[in-house]
């Protein structure tokens, strides 16, 4: 098995191997850890899917481009799709329920003009959450996706304080009905995974899919490192912005017409 050159994961920690092992275990329906039971899943494997024994490519950087003009006020299809896809069932307690993606309405106090846009983990190239995490549970994959390893997160919540985008949630209570492809754990922190399980199977994130199929088509997903990708071309052609670009974190989620 090839080893991923993961530039931010701690030494001795190989997320690829771990993921490979957990997928292998999942296929057999093995309990990985007390309380975390993974069941066999049928994985769609289109031609573009990354074989499971192959490392995450460090030449790819997954990202998103959101065209704010096409995002409709009041529409929250991406939010519902995310909750559905990742099993984010709420308990009717908005302050403690998890939210990986949210809609923000912004209004310019001078002109009164308002816009509506989704905000989720921005998958920063220099993620403060990864820098501060004491155990290395927060890590960045070689392809730019920032994740939390549910097995090493101790729930200190320092990453939540460090994230400038309020992108992370802490699991405040006992969970039920988890999705096997998106394991969660009480007492640990989580955030948008960019639907890593879908990406690894050659599909697009659930929010992007639903936005294009059923709503304004405001979200685009692709490889920021590939100059020929649709997303790179759009970024090269149109003016795009990053939220809090002044912080210099180089987020992987970009906005157009913001």
């Amino acid at each position: 098995m090839t080893t991923a050159s993961n530039d931010s994961a701690p030494e001795g920690f190989d997320p690829v191997r771990r993921r490979f092992l957990s997928t292998a275990a999942a296929a057999a329906g093995v309990a990985l850890a007390p309380g975390v039971m993974l069941y066999g899943i049928t994985r769609p494997t289109p031609a573009s899917a990354r074989p499971l024994d192959e490392a995450v490519s460090p030449t790819v950087r997954w990202g998103m481009l959101i065209d704010v003009n096409r995002c409709q006020e009041g529409c929250d299809k991406c939010v519902t799709a995310c909750a559905e896809e990742n099993g984010l069932t709420g308990h009717g307690r908005p302050r403690t329920d998890a939210q990986w993606i949210r809609k923000i309405e912004i209004t310019d106090p001078a002109s009164g003009a308002s816009k509506s846009l989704p905000v989720m983990c921005q998958h920063c190239a220099d993620p403060p959450c990864v820098d501060v995490c004491p155990t290395g549970a927060s890590f960045k994959r070689a392809d730019g996706i920032v994740l939390v390893d549910k097995h090493t997160c101790i729930g200190c919540r320092y990453c939540m304080l460090a994230c400038p985008y309020k992108a992370r949630s802490f699991v405040h209570e006992t969970l039920s009905d988890q999705k096997s492809h998106a394991p969660r754990g009480k007492g640990t922190v989580e955030s948008c995974t960019m639907c890593v399980h879908r990406i690894d199977a050659g599909r697009t994130p659930a929010c992007v899919e639903v936005c294009n199929a059923e709503a304004g088509g405001a979200m685009m997903f692709g490889d920021l490192n590939d100059p020929d990708s649709e997303i790179s071309k759009r970024i090269a052609t149109y003016a795009t912005t990053q939220i809090r670009a002044d912080l210099g974190l180089d987020p992987g989620v970009r906005y157009q017409n913001l």
């Binding site: 908005p94 949210r102 809609k103 923000i104 912004i106 310019d108 905000v119």
Partner: peptide, 15 residues
């Protein structure tokens, strides 16, 4: 946290 300096913001996540 200030995500959009100078703007008024509103969300379901208490922005």
């Amino acid at each position: 946290l200030t995500l959009f300096p100078g703007m008024e913001v509103q969300s379901t996540f208490f922005d």
